[in-house]
Design a protein around this nucleic acid. Structure first.
Lengths: 348, 348
DNA sequence: GACGCAAACGTTACCGCTCACGTTTCGTGC
DNA sequence: GCACGAAACGTGAGCGGTAACGTTTGCGTC
């Protein structure tokens, strides 16, 4: 019996004796009350002498806070519901990866709900479902009109936040920087002599799609060029294919600018099926730089985004909101990647 | 802007008494003890009369269990750590989606850790990190040798489970069914007259890659054909490209079977860059059926897997393990999708 | 040196649930 | 109708934290 108590101090490291140390254990070792330990952990004032002893005890025992107890006591969970587009696509997947990394670092748990972010009733249902649970907040990873409307009307019991591109006004706002990648695309194509442009944009209900569309048009107008047409897809390769098939050949388009890589590759297939050479007859550009982009035939000129950082940033912003602070979005980089799908405009 | 308007303070939806009902509230309304309520919730025996009254009270108050309290009392969290390959690829993303769906349904929370599943030290670090926390279990979503070794050597304080393809013996074991998709690929190609095969396999440290490799060879041998060579990639398009470039032209290969779609598309680029026509000169097949597969040029013949179900199944199996039961893997479907990247063998 | 006032600290009481254990109820066999 | 045992039920304690409040400590002031 007595040997057990002696052993107690030393043997904590391994699971062996069962439970992990509590603040009471730490307090006993440090010779203070559990409240002092709690205070120190919360960052409140503790006298240097005690601070040191507690810190040492903390270290010695390998203390880790018990989330459940804290959650129960404060009635504030560290659980965040994440609403995201189905992760078949690469972008959402990587964003989620960033969210996950940041969440784990901040000690939050994720409740991932994938849905069709353009289906208002699906969103409402998800929000309702989640609203009844003990969650700290809701993070939506796609800003579509439906999502925005649902968020505006829902009665949240917790902070909710749409962590994605924001308004349509294309100012110097850092959140729009990624649409700014389109400036570089247009510069690049105009530099190659292109004057006859066609756009395959993402669905208009997505803010990101509108931002890109706007950026495209504003960039062209800086050169005094008007776009010869815009078709709308749904981000999928299939929709890019359909959109490109319907481009009237009499327009003499030499450059097709797509809102993402999937639509671009669909467009490439459609155009080359109808006998056009890429980039000999038509240049095609994408957006996102999916990993396969460099190995399509031809390799795709596109814009590289840092999805992971986007996810990290979104989560950070939610957390600051949970803690009652507010914050500005981080700066997103967008970088043109020139590959073989774009080339000099066909003369004539 | 849009996000700011969605931001809503903690305005309790249903006002009144504020906090949500506890089992004590329910017990009071039903005129029984809290323990009776608890027992009923756990599915233990309760006399019909009481049962009815409690159920009614439950309904009336809209009771929802407090996860934190339960967790604290049982010392069993409902938190599961998920180790997964970086989700840049589509497969892992969709698997994760399935896991998420199942987890949420079963009331579990996810702690997602993305890492390089072929980096032993990264795995060990992640396991160590997670092992100290209050988690119910660990779920690994990729079975590589490194992962298996790490799991074999780690001292787990909780159940850990690799939810992915299992052994290499290609029996009737349902887990290998998806490698069986390769049988269909081989049947298809042989039916088109191909006799000279080359394989671009995934990394040998992945069990799934080995299963596919084995399935490929066994299928060919059923026709009395020997593979003319195998190159190993790392699942990426880049590695497929490199592998295909190194295929000796004197082999007269007419069919290239790749271990996944990304490597297949890399191979297509390499082969067509060197003047070969796909599928005129060489047929190329993939595996996975990524969403873009149908829109590559040429559209890719491949095998469709149900990733989401794979994720669901993995999580279900972990849960049964958490609960002390054990279970067999579900049946995975694998379905050949014939597209334009495969065609009749060049004669001669 | 006595005093006062914060800051630092300790004590006690919860948060909502489960577990162990003691008490009641009910159906059975004689 | 009784003893009897099992099922059903109630009671109390505790999980590991935080919150509220009372007590001590240390320092500056007179």
């Amino acid at each position: 019996m007595s040997s057990e108590s002696a052993e107690q101090g030393a043997s904590m490291a391994r699971a062996g004796d069962g439970r992990s140390p509590t603040i009471y254990d730490v307090a006993k070792v440090a010779g203070v009350s559990h409240q002092t330990v709690s205070r120190l952990l919360k960052g409140e004032g503790v006298r240097p002498k005690n601070r040191e002893r507690v810190l040492q005890a903390l270290e010695e025992l390998g203390y880790r806070p018990n989330l459940a107890a804290r959650w129960l006591a404060t009635n504030k969970s560290h659980r965040v519901a994440v609403l995201t587009q189905e992760i078949g696509q690469v972008g959402p997947g990587r964003i989620l990866q960033g969210v996950g990394a940041e969440a784990r670092q901040a000690g939050y748990l994720l409740d991932i709900i994938t849905l069709d972010v353009s289906d208002r009733s699906a969103i409402d249902e998800a929000i309702g479902q989640v609203n009844g649970e003990d969650i700290a907040g809701i993070l939506a990873l796609a800003s579509t009109d439906e999502m925005i409307a649902a968020f505006a009307h829902a009665e949240f019991r917790v902070p909710a936040f749409i962590g994605a591109e924001e308004d349509d006004a294309l100012g110097e706002h850092p959140a729009q920087r990624n649409a700014r990648g389109l400036d570089q695309v247009v510069d690049h194509l105009v530099g190659l002599g292109h004057r006859r442009f066609f756009q395959i944009a993402g669905p208009r209900t997505w803010v990101a799609a509108r931002n890109r569309e706007l950026a495209y048009e504003r960039s062209l107008s800086r050169y005094g060029i008007a776009s010869l047409g815009t078709a709308y897809g749904d981000w999928s390769a299939a929709s890019g294919y359909e959109a490109a098939r319907k481009i009237p050949s009499e327009l003499g388009i030499t450059a097709v600018v797509a809102g993402n890589d999937q639509m671009a590759l669909g467009a490439i297939l459609a155009l080359s099926s109808s006998g056009l050479d890429i980039p000999g007859d038509v240049s095609v550009t994408g957006f996102d730089d999916i990993p396969e982009a460099a190995y399509l035939c031809p390799p795709l000129t596109t814009v590289r985004l840092d999805f992971e950082e986007q996810g990290r940033d979104a989560f950070r912003r939610l957390v600051t909101q949970l803690e009652g602070r507010s914050s500005a979005p981080g700066i997103m980089t967008a970088e043109l990647v020139e590959r073989a799908s774009s080339g000099p405009a066909r003369s004539g």
